[in-house]
Amino acid sequence: MFAYVLGRILQAVPVLFLSSIAVFLVLRLVPGDPAESLAGEDATDERVAEIRVQLGIDQPVPRQYITWIGDLAQGDLGTSFRNGLPVSRLLKASLPPTLELAVVAYALALCIGIPLGVMAGANPRSAWDWLLSGYTLVTIGIPSFLSGILLLWIFSVVLGWFPTSGRVAFTEDPVDSLRHLALPAFALGTGLAAILARYTRTAVSEIMGHDYIRTAKAKGLSQRTVVVRHALRNSLIPIVTIAALQVGGVMAGAVVVEQVFTRPGMGRLVVESIQNRDYLVVQSALVVLVTIFVGVNLVADLAYGFLDPRVRRK
């Protein structure tokens, strides 16, 4: 098992390394010079050149990368071009709101998606199956930014039940924190739940046709035991795969949902930093997000080993 875990961790290293290069280069391909933008319309050419030196972007691109990656390896994320704040401070302020949103939205997706998928898969062409079809149609058909605006309008502006924007830390005021989280998490989580439910339905439905399920039923086991103990467990590998891949979807969705609900998370930080050509903030934020994604997929890989002993043995 140890070798399996080690192997998976080692595989993650080149992924992170290549991602860092991609992130670094893509940003430099976007037109717009941070120094010219920062300098303002009154700046002379000399002042713009000075600012380039101040920001370190007067150096050749490979050297800029080596400096950045070297600093990153030592835990120094640098300083924001735009506001002069340490990037670590910006990430520290922005990561918790995104993680809260992602965790709650993800939990909501799991709580809705898996039971609904299992019920629909175990009972094809039943009311559960129709419910899933309807749910999928509505939630996937309406993009999260639109459902977010509708939710905001109904529940915040008209009914006044939830705040329209912002975030309160869970440790500061748990109730207010959940009030701020409810609508964004709902907007993000329900769409993810639909995808998860669809995959779960397919996986469970397929398993339900296998001989060993028929055998279990013939043994007189209850439907619940057959579904939970035999069908669901054996459906878990594709479900875990899609659930892990959805972490990327959660992160991408959070970017949009944070904009709609003015939640001060990583999504807004990245969007604004791209607009401002704040290279170090974007680079560091994306590396953190990629690391989370890689980390979750690593956990999923490890979960395969746990769920299926054949994988461990291989």
């Binding site: 905001l152 309008w153 915040s156 502006v157 006044g160 705040p163 329209t164 924007s165 912002g166 944070e258 904009q259 709609v260 609900f261 003015t262 001060p264 807004r268």
Partner: peptide, 18 residues
């Protein structure tokens, strides 16, 4: 002061009394 993502979000927040 609250920082908003855009003017539309700020208008909604004003309308709701936030």
């Amino acid at each position: 002061g609250k920082i908003f993502a855009d003017q539309d979000a700020m208008g909604l927040a004003f309308e709701s009394g936030d």
